[in-house]
């Protein structure tokens, strides 16, 4: 069971990251829900989606207390960090987020998602780097099985490239605790 928010600038792929997550989790037999902010809600810098993954029936698909936050930019981190449950997990894109300190009640991991995706020649795949870090740090799903599921997701869309899996792997191997 995990209540998750993935947030960032529009165009960073947070909605897609959420869709990949529920796609793979659903194939693993979990119940899933995905909701997104849209339209006027999105004005002012952050796009986000809420994902609930559970072995049980899902009640509210809009969690107010979070187990996992994936923050791809600083406004997203600032907006949602106060909603974390004690012991929750925060993944920050350290290419764009630089805080002098982090709260004690959560585990925080950083990964240079934007820089790594650019260096890998797949600038739009910073979201996949973040996903790799999140799967690795959370233990929510098996890292290798998730990687295979991610490939299957893009294969089904007919627009996969080996660089997607590469970026995901980079995230899963490059995260560091902050």
């Amino acid at each position: 069971m995990a209540d998750i928010i993935m947030a960032g600038f529009g165009g960073q792929g947070v909605l897609t990251a959420g869709k990949i997550l529920i796609d793979v989790a659903a194939r693993e037999g979990k119940n899933v829900s995905w909701t997104s902010s849209y339209g006027a809600e999105m004005r002012g810098g952050t796009a986000s989606c809420s994902v609930v993954i559970s072995d049980e029936e899902i009640g509210s698909p809009y969690p107010t207390k979070l187990d996992i936050l994936l923050a791809m930019n600083e406004p997203s981190y600032d907006k949602f960090i106060g909603s974390m449950r004690d012991g929750g997990l925060v993944i920050v894109n350290t290419s764009l987020v630089a805080k002098s300190g982090y709260p004690d009640n959560v585990r925080v991991y950083g990964v240079d998602a934007t820089d790594m995706a650019n260096a890998a020649g797949n600038g739009r795949a910073a979201n996949l780097v973040m996903l790799g870090a999140m799967i690795k740090a959370s233990g929510l799903l098996d890292v290798d099985r998730f990687g295979a599921g991610l490939d299957a997701y893009f294969d089904a869309k007919g627009k996969n490239t080996p660089k997607n899996a590469e970026c995901y792997r980079l995230g899963a191997t490059s995260l560091r605790e902050l």
Partner: peptide, 9 residues
């Protein structure tokens, strides 16, 4: 606007 926009199984 929530039910129609959410994704589920």
């Amino acid at each position: 606007g929530a039910i129609c926009q959410m994704i589920e199984k």
